[in-house]
Write a protein that binds this DNA or RNA. Structure first.
Lengths: 214, 214
DNA sequence: TAGATTGTTAATCGATTAACAATC
DNA sequence: TAGATTGTTAATCGATTAACAATC
């Protein structure tokens, strides 16, 4: 296996997608697949698929292809799906609550262990077997639970203070739904941004542009 | 202005981000900015910024830089922020409701005009000045309102039937939160996918990988 | 063994960066 | 005019695709 530090963002970005498609194939009872068949299904080239897998050492067999279950497990392990990192949700507004309820964290490598909000109206509310706690309790909670990551569903203006506090609590990994630019202030933090606004505007661009074409 | 059809996805993907940063600059009272200053702020190179803008004709002035308000307006127009496309939400579960309540569509080029669900327990519910309608009413609604786009917050298994129906109703643009792969069945549809699961798994990969490095 | 399909190297393509002439 | 900064061309870099020898 090559040095994983050199894996490009493009390749990493395709891993969850491979994992998802392999899960679907498995559910369909498919035991083996060639890079050619997989490429058709996923809309990639067979070349790219083989290149991607070979970044991690190659999981296939010449003349046979790839064993679906085995390949899926390998990719899962590369992602770290089996690590069940402890994650907390900060911000229990509409979006935060939906995220907490909508996702099955355990299938994506995480375990949701706490929900926090600074709004007293929300603390005490039960979500998904968890009770919303006051953000004031974050210190003692983290000392005890030692969560690895945090989901930020907070307004931009709260971003810096909240993140600073969480980093003090030894949380350095963030799934960020806010507009706050974490890496600008904390360049070492591991951040995955979800910019819903940007995504919607991209759709807008594509509509506008397709209409211009008519 | 060059043929906008040739604009690459990489460039398009940066447009909303430019728009956002320009809005922030404007809010700070900043009237003009050079590609150099903007690049520092956004973590890009000045070269890339100038290249990007020049895909659309160039909005600057030598020796001066860019007028913030003017540049923002230009980018907004390129995206089509002023079009207010009519959009409907299909699927009023946790995530759908959160999306409807969380986003200010009017600032992103859309106008939310209807919410639909096939679950009778949800129809009649009021969200954001709108009432959840039965998906059975989609035909008559679309005939009357002629929405351009749909937000899909539905389970994967419902994806194909719902999309097929919507396309019959002359909706061809989708903001897709489901795992259903629209373009596989409907290659001409304009689709912007939000794969929250994939995003979370990417975070997982980055955590796993950074820990390996220690 | 022959056929299939990988792993891997080489070629191509496109995006990013650097450089600089044009010009405000 | 001199200084600043763009618009644009050329160079570099990296990712994707093609090709094929290795091998199951």
């Amino acid at each position: 296996m090559k040095d994983e530090h050199s894996i490009s963002k493009s390749v990493i970005g395709r891993l969850p997608r491979y994992y998802r498609f392999l899960g679907m194939l498995q559910a369909e009872g498919c035991e083996r697949i060639s890079s050619g068949e997989l490429s058709e299904r996923m809309g990639l080239t067979a070349s790219q698929i083989r290149q991607d897998f070979n970044h991690f050492g190659g999981f296939g067999q010449q003349g046979y292809g790839y064993n679906v279950a085995q390949l899926k497990e390998n990719i899962g392990r590369i992602i770290g799906i089996d690590k069940y990192y402890k994650i907390i949700l900060v911000g229990a507004g509409n979006l935060g609550r939906a995220i907490a309820q909508h996702l099955d964290f355990s299938k994506k490598g995480f375990q949701l262990v706490g929900i926090f909000d600074s709004d007293e109206k929300l603390t005490g509310l039960g979500i998904n077997n968890l009770v919303v706690r006051s953000f004031d309790d974050i210190d003692s909670f983290c000392t005890q639970m030692k969560p690895t990551a945090a989901i930020l569903c907070i307004p931009e203006y709260a971003g810096k203070n909240v993140t600073e506090k969480l980093i003090e609590c030894d949380i350095h990994c963030f799934w960020n739904f806010s507009h706050y630019n974490i890496n600008e202030d904390f360049p070492d933090a591991i951040v995955e941004n979800v910019h819903l606004n940007d995504s919607l505007m991209t759709l807008c661009y594509n509509i506008t542009n397709s209409e211009d074409a008519k």
